[in-house]
């Protein structure tokens, strides 16, 4: 049958759900082993963070779509958690191969890493369901319904309280770690990446400025330009 936007969306959703059918909402045995191999076991912090962010996400989803949709938000979050675990495991396997180490204690106890990875997984889920789609002509300026406008990227960053610059760090590794991501989703993440690089990372309060300052003080960087430049 001919491809239509609806059929394409349904196929993407079925593919995402299908890919995650075998993924549990708990860490797999392999991932749990990575946790146990850490100098400081991150398991409890990971669970606690998911509990807190799950509540925040569901509530904000409900506010954006409607109070009756808090449960729907919880379903989206749970799907995001499955993807988060799946990608984390793939990333760690790749790092184990590259670095020949099995103790990732520092990375796995880094709250920013977990929040960035989860935010990226949730962005993929919402983009698949068309809830974070960019309109032609610029982001957050479309004529779609309120829910679409409200939940467009960088909405997720506000929900999980994450700096855009930290979200940027995870995008490429995320795409590398999941070769099954559809072209449309990769394109969506690339659009997020470009928005961060061109605008969001340069907003007041971005951690990028502190990094640039440190580089400058180290004497290795050229004169740092002002944000306006």
């Amino acid at each position: 049958p001919p491809q239509t936007p609806i059929r394409a969306a349904m196929t993407s959703i079925q593919q995402l759900r299908g890919d995650l059918t075998s993924s549990g909402d708990q860490p797999s045995t392999h991932l749990a082993t990575y946790f146990k191999n850490c100098t400081v076991d991150p398991t409890q912090d990971v669970m606690k963070r998911l509990e807190t962010l799950g509540e925040a996400f569901s509530q904000r989803f409900g506010q954006a779509v409607g109070p009756h949709c808090v449960t729907l938000g919880r379903q989206r979050f749970n799907l995001g958690v499955k993807l988060y675990y799946k990608i984390m495991e793939a990333m760690l396997k790749s790092e184990e191969k590259r670095l020949s180490v099995q103790n990732f204690s520092k990375l796995l106890n880094d709250s920013t890493f977990h929040t960035s990875l989860l935010a990226c997984a949730l962005e993929v889920v919402m983009a698949t369901y068309g809830e974070s789609s960019f309109k032609t002509g610029g982001y957050n300026q479309g004529s779609g319904d309120a829910a679409e406008r409200n939940m467009c990227f960088p909405w997720i960053l506000d929900v999980v309280n994450l700096a855009a610059f930290d979200f940027y760090k995870v995008i490429e590794s995320f795409i590398k770690a999941d070769p099954t991501l559809s072209k449309d989703i990769v394109k969506h993440l690339e659009t997020c990446e470009n928005l961060i690089m061109e605008r969001i990372a340069w907003r007041t309060g971005s951690p990028l400025f502190e990094l640039l300052r440190q580089e400058h003080e180290g004497g290795t960087a050229e004169q740092v330009e002002t944000p306006a430049s």
Partner: peptide, 21 residues
């Protein structure tokens, strides 16, 4: 299968990006 341009070098992974190497 997609046109994404991978910019990271082989020696760069998620550990380096979060300063955890």
């Amino acid at each position: 299968s997609h046109d994404y341009h991978f910019g990271l070098e082989d020696h760069e992974g998620i550990s380096e990006l979060f300063d955890c190497d």
